Amino acid sequence: MGPDDITAARLSEIMGGEVGAIESTRIGDGLVGLNLRVRLLDAAPELPASVVIKLPSIDETSRATGIALRNYEREVKFYLQVADTVDIRVPECHLGEWDESTGDFVLVLEDMAPAEQGDQVIGCSVERAEVAVEELALLHAPRWDDPALHDIDWLGRRTSTEDVAAVAALWAMFHGPFLETYARHLSTEQIDLSKMFGPRILDWMSGREGPLAITHGDYRLDNLLFATPAGGPPVTAVDWQTPGHGPPVADLAYFLGAGLLPDQRAVSERSLLDRYAVALAARSVDVDSSWLWTQYCRESFGGVVMAVVASQIVGESARSESMFAAMATRHLQHALDTGALDLI
């Protein structure tokens, strides 16, 4: 299904009721996928007023990336096979299909409006961060150290020798081109840290320890929808293209490392980690505070890797450079502030 295939007749089949006229508008930047809000203008009263439809990116580079990295496959399978086994708030899925032969997909999802998308470039308040970290615990706790996750073969993993080597190769390939574009946004200390981290990336990845859980893989402000005065759940997580079976603290470090501005993060991160731990404990998952802090500091490099690699493999947009610049500067500063290199 492409944008031209979204018709009232097809949506009537999907939604199980007469849709009538429709109106589509693009929402978000969607670097790897295309997101459309489709208003059901003359729908039967039992149907929603609108839905969100996710499709492959219309940018060929981004589309090829989404297929090669199995982003499209994983997002559909997350909604169909995993979403009901965790407690984090996600949109209801009306339809999920993935074509193995072409790699294309379609998702028809609940429209969370009037909730509003966070902004990765601007950052967020500590109050919003509190809501987000508590919601993150609802993703991790239900499948915390669940051995059955080893049987879900499509979940992303960064634990095998092959995966570790692949990430190290991507870093080696893209770090130079990344600096050509983004060095002007970085301090000398941040550039130096990125260069010192490169030779240590294998040790960083292979040295991870502790329990594993379902992870989002890209838990950041652009992928979170927050309640507004007009309504909506407190926070809803979207863009499930990188679900994984990995260290849960990686999601936490990734969100706080770039979601808050560095000064805010530095004064608030310990209390936010405590809030996350309390939310886990409420669901019978107890974590040692010193272990949590060490893993959080160590995982600050996850956002650095994402900024370097992702900035080089997705199509450019009007906003992409400012977004990746914000991510790179904040994640590198996070690693500097926490002394993360010394923990490898």
Rank of each mutant, 00 (worst) to 15 (best):
I6K: 12
G176H: 05
G207F: 07
E60P: 09
F197Y: 11
P3V: 15
L149D: 14
G217T: 08
D119Q: 12
C124Q: 07
A165M: 06
A43L: 12
L109V: 13
G118Q: 06
M173R: 13
A310Q: 14
L69K: 10
L202F: 10
S62M: 01
L221Y: 03
P262T: 07
K54A: 03
A9G: 15
D153A: 15
D59A: 12
R157H: 10
T242C: 03
L256C: 08
P56W: 08
A253P: 05
A253G: 08
R143V: 11
G33C: 14
S271N: 14
H150C: 09
G259M: 03
P114C: 07
G244Q: 10
V278F: 02
N71G: 08
D153C: 14
P199W: 06
G96W: 09
I53F: 10
L170T: 03
E75W: 01
E13K: 15
V305G: 09
A21W: 13
S317R: 14
G246K: 00
C297I: 08
Q241K: 01
L261I: 06
A115N: 13
T7V: 15
V121Y: 01
R298E: 04
I122Q: 15
S194V: 07
G2V: 00
E180I: 00
L170I: 00
P248I: 03
Q295Y: 02
L136C: 06
L261R: 15
T228Q: 01
A277N: 07
L139T: 11
D337Y: 07
L138M: 13
H331P: 01
D146E: 13
L36N: 10
F174W: 11
V32G: 03
S300D: 07
R200W: 03
R265M: 02
G210H: 02
V51E: 04
G118V: 04
G302L: 03
R330T: 06
S160P: 03
S320F: 00
W240N: 04
S62G: 03
P114I: 06
L95E: 12
A328Q: 01
E73G: 02
R89A: 14
A141H: 01
C93P: 08
T188M: 05
V82K: 04
R37D: 05
A282T: 08
K54E: 02
I88M: 11
L31F: 14
P48E: 05
A230Q: 14
G66M: 04
G96K: 09
T65I: 03
P247A: 09
T236K: 05
W293A: 10
V131T: 15
D163L: 02
